Simulated assay, not measured.
Amino acid sequence: MDPTAHHYAITVSDLDRMVTFYRDVLGLDVLAEFTVGGEAFATGVDVPGASAEFVHLDGGDARMELVEYGPEGDRRPRPSLNEPGATHLGLEVDDLDSVYAELPDSVDTLSEPQTTESGTRILFVRDPEGNLVELLET
């Protein structure tokens, strides 16, 4: 087996709002929009009666997938990076300070941009549903 990354996914409750954030605030291009349903899908995701709307965004070497399920599941607690099983999306940018300066005031950040011991500059933000996104400049 020689797998390669195809996509990274975030399940969302408001697909339109999330597409607006990732497209308009973070600058990811929309590649595809589609709906999937039927018994094979419901069985494959182990959610009885499931259907979902998908949007694929251009994440460089792999797609970023936003998916809104019907029926919607229970909400998870707001994630913290030091919890086992915590996830975040990492997006590399050319100029972190410019990105930070251009973020709308409504975007929740964990801190101002920081330079780590390795020399990487990082900035963690939360998307409109509280998912963590690391913006980094190497």
Rank of each mutant, 00 (worst) to 15 (best):
M1N: 06
A5P: 10
A5W: 04
A5L: 15
H6K: 07
H6G: 05
H6A: 09
H7C: 02
A9Y: 00
A9K: 01
I10W: 03
I10A: 00
I10K: 04
S13P: 00
D14F: 04
D14I: 06
L15D: 01
L15M: 03
L15E: 00
L15T: 00
D16H: 03
R17I: 02
F21W: 09
F21K: 01
Y22E: 04
Y22V: 13
R23P: 03
R23C: 06
V25I: 13
G27P: 02
G27L: 01
L28D: 05
D29A: 14
V30G: 08
V30F: 04
V30Q: 09
E33R: 15
F34M: 11
F34L: 12
F34R: 13
T35I: 13
V36L: 14
G38M: 14
G38E: 13
A40H: 15
F41M: 15
A42D: 13
A42Q: 14
T43L: 12
T43C: 06
G44L: 09
G44I: 03
V45F: 04
V47Y: 06
V47M: 12
V47W: 07
P48M: 10
G49K: 10
G49N: 10
G49L: 10
A52K: 05
E53G: 07
E53W: 01
V55I: 09
D58G: 08
G59M: 01
G60D: 11
D61W: 11
A62T: 09
A62N: 08
M64A: 01
M64S: 00
E65T: 01
V67T: 10
V67E: 03
E68M: 03
E68A: 11
Y69F: 15
G70D: 12
G70Y: 09
G70I: 00
P71S: 02
P71Y: 02
E72I: 03
D74A: 08
D74K: 02
R75G: 07
R75T: 10
R76I: 11
R78F: 04
R78P: 04
P79G: 02
S80I: 14
L81T: 12
N82M: 12
E83R: 15
P84I: 15
P84N: 11
A86Q: 12
T87Q: 09
T87M: 07
L89K: 00
G90K: 04
L91G: 03
L91Q: 01
E92V: 08
E92K: 11
V93N: 08
D95R: 10
D95N: 14
L96I: 12
D97T: 03
S98L: 12
S98I: 02
V99F: 02
V99L: 07
A101H: 06
E102C: 05
L103S: 05
S106T: 14
S106Q: 07
E112W: 00
P113N: 10
T115S: 13
T116W: 07
E117P: 15
S118H: 09
S118Y: 11
T120Y: 09
T120E: 13
I122W: 05
L123V: 04
F124H: 14
V125R: 08
V125N: 03
V125G: 05
R126T: 14
R126A: 15
D127E: 03
P128V: 03
P128G: 02
E129R: 00
E129K: 02
G130F: 06
N131D: 08
L132N: 13
L132M: 12
L132Y: 05
V133Y: 09
E134H: 13
E134I: 12
T138Q: 07
